[in-house]
Simulated scan of single mutants.
Amino acid sequence: MFERFTRQARTVVMQAQQEARSLGHTDVGTEHLLLGVLAQEGSPVADTLRRRGITAPACRSAVETVLGRGNGPDGHGAVDAEALQALGIDLDEVRSRAERTFGPGALDAPEPGPRPRRLLPFPLGRRRNRDGDRGGHIPFAPRARRALQRSLREAVDLKSRHIGVEHLLLGLLDPADKLTSEVLRRLGTEPGTVRADVLADLARAA
């Protein structure tokens, strides 16, 4: 699938990694992909978002409000547990399940270390570096991986041979994704509205 990404779409995904890292988050979510889209100054869909008042600074502020910054020793920092509870997400239960499955500290931030050699510019899961430490890149959350997979379907539906920024954006606009839906709600909109705007702009440009 990744060979079908345009250069700008690849930049979005790599920017999402940087956004997650700068916020101190332990994985890359759809909210970071949204920030990656907004970073593409020349992208028409980024302009569509900005027309609705969804700018990179405003979106980053909304992400911080919902998720906090990962400055704490447990890798989550100032995550607002009450905000996550309101979204139906029990942070303690998520951590407990992860540690039962993957062992203690499964959600802790990776220690810095040499970057592993990799074939893809944006690997989707953790890999070990040569010293056996988990480091280098930040793993993608399952909902972000699903969004990337949906972007392929969006490209097919729009009869495009390549996966562009517009397909990535459409792929992450899933109403079932409670976190990104909450981020958009704080920005005064919701996934269905943004999707309609994007499709309308794409139709006018065709």
Rank of each mutant, 00 (worst) to 15 (best):
P44S: 01
A200V: 05
A203Y: 02
A9W: 10
L38N: 00
D108T: 03
D201I: 00
R186V: 05
A62E: 09
V63G: 08
A203E: 12
L91P: 03
V198I: 04
L187S: 06
T6P: 09
P121G: 13
N129H: 09
S61L: 06
Q8A: 15
L49P: 01
T101R: 15
L49C: 12
L202H: 12
G72Y: 03
E99A: 07
A86D: 14
R145L: 13
P114K: 00
L148K: 03
L84V: 05
V94W: 01
D133C: 09
V28K: 06
R69T: 06
L184P: 14
L33E: 09
L38D: 05
R128F: 11
V165E: 07
S151K: 07
R127C: 15
G24D: 08
L49M: 11
L202S: 07
Q40V: 04
R97Y: 06
Q149I: 01
S43Q: 11
E190P: 02
L33M: 15
F140R: 03
D92T: 10
E111V: 14
R117C: 11
G103P: 14
E19T: 01
V156F: 09
M14Y: 07
E99N: 09
E182I: 00
V79E: 02
V28T: 13
G171K: 00
E99R: 00
L179M: 12
G135Y: 02
V45T: 08
P121Y: 05
G70F: 09
V183E: 09
L87F: 10
R21M: 12
A200N: 08
V79N: 02
E3D: 15
L184E: 10
R127I: 12
P112G: 05
Q40L: 08
G136V: 05
